[in-house]
Computed example of a mutant assay.
Amino acid sequence: MKIIIDAMGGDHAPAEILKGAAQAVKEYHVSIVAVGNAEKIAQAVKEHSIDMDQITIVNASEEISMCDEPTAAIRHKKDSSMVVGMRMLAAGEGDAFVSAGSTGALLAGATLIVKRLKGVKRPAIGTVIPGANHPFLLLDSGANVECRPEMLDAFATMGTVYMEKVLGVKQPKVALVNNGAEETKGTPTYVTAHALLKQNSNIQFVGNVEPKDIPQGDVDVVVCDGFTGNVILKLTEGLAKMLVGQIKGVFLKNALTKLAFLFVKDGMKDFKKKLDADEYGGALMMGVQHPVIKAHGSSNAKAFKNAIRQAKACVEGNVVNTMAEKLALTVPDGTEG
């Protein structure tokens, strides 16, 4: 399996990106194509003694920054690492593409270069988040600020496929984010979406879910527009960091609390790991014709390695083709959702 990576995307590129790629080669037995500035890549390899076995370099002279206007960057920076990498993916020169670069540019590139699946108006970002009982998938978590009901319906179908194929959840439970459990709650868009989700035979729809119940992880796929999803995602990340910091402060209070920590050390390690976003690594751009994974902009080697793991799982699970098949059943007349 060949995974194409954007070696220049992210806060710690290219060193941490290449380190993560080298770890992925060893752990997941994949080959990597690293696209980026060959001189900068060579310098990082030398400075950090990175093992480049099974990693080939494709030179790209330009980089897309977080400040660039996304669509303009994709259209005009044609020799950027992101554009070159996605063109290779679209041409069948790799099985998946992973980038920690600009989310907006990656979304634009996935839409304009890799192309959408039939039945998808706009791709969505699906982010796996730890819950009290088990992880859940939140989508859209930032790609589309506003969504039509048909888009939310398509998100539910794609999210179900992802949870089944990548995380191995049988008959994932799907819920629609709302401010109450009643079917009549929410804006007209959400009321209509609720009706569509009830009729969607591709999913196991369990109704509305209130934000206070989302962290329990009782549902597997949480559907909402990108504005709501991004707020939920960032609030969840902030609360997780706050909780870990507060608990750490309790145990560091004095000698007795430090001693008490020794008795719960293993449990605290498991707790911290459960809340660690790096364990999941990245989010799948759902609704495009080949797997495109968005790694966190601040990804370290561990996070990027796990983003590559996600890419591999999506390829092995035939996620994209299965989504296309399910969407065809949802929108048989070819209408875009």
Score class of each variant (00 low, 15 high):
residue 120 V to K: 10
residue 230 N to K: 04
residue 227 F to K: 03
residue 273 K to S: 11
residue 189 T to H: 08
residue 194 H to Y: 14
residue 104 G to D: 09
residue 227 F to I: 10
residue 238 G to M: 00
residue 261 F to K: 12
residue 316 E to F: 03
residue 287 G to V: 09
residue 253 K to Q: 11
residue 153 D to V: 10
residue 304 F to Y: 03
residue 206 V to Q: 05
residue 139 L to I: 03
residue 169 V to W: 06
residue 250 V to H: 03
residue 277 A to R: 10
residue 267 G to P: 07
residue 242 M to V: 04
residue 337 G to A: 12
residue 325 E to Y: 03
residue 158 M to R: 12
residue 207 G to R: 11
residue 130 P to T: 11
residue 205 F to S: 07
residue 311 A to T: 12
residue 110 A to L: 06
residue 231 V to I: 14
residue 85 G to E: 07
residue 308 I to M: 01
residue 176 L to H: 03
residue 12 H to E: 02
residue 123 P to T: 09
residue 7 A to V: 11
residue 273 K to W: 08
residue 290 H to P: 00
residue 14 P to Y: 00
residue 300 N to Y: 07
residue 148 R to G: 06
residue 282 G to V: 11
residue 144 N to L: 05
residue 231 V to R: 00
residue 149 P to G: 08
residue 202 N to H: 06
residue 53 D to T: 14
residue 306 N to D: 04
residue 8 M to E: 07
residue 312 K to S: 09
residue 43 Q to V: 13
residue 303 A to Y: 02
residue 328 A to Q: 12
residue 209 V to H: 02
residue 242 M to T: 01
residue 126 G to L: 04
residue 317 G to I: 09
residue 66 M to Q: 10
residue 203 I to L: 14
residue 207 G to K: 10
residue 322 T to Y: 07
residue 104 G to H: 04
residue 36 G to A: 07
residue 32 I to N: 04
residue 324 A to F: 00
residue 194 H to A: 08
residue 70 P to A: 10
residue 211 P to A: 15
residue 275 L to E: 06
residue 272 K to N: 09
residue 5 I to L: 15
residue 27 E to Y: 05
residue 10 G to V: 12
residue 31 S to I: 08
residue 246 Q to I: 15
residue 170 K to M: 08
residue 38 A to H: 01
residue 211 P to K: 06
residue 202 N to G: 10
residue 49 S to P: 00
residue 169 V to Q: 07
residue 138 L to M: 11
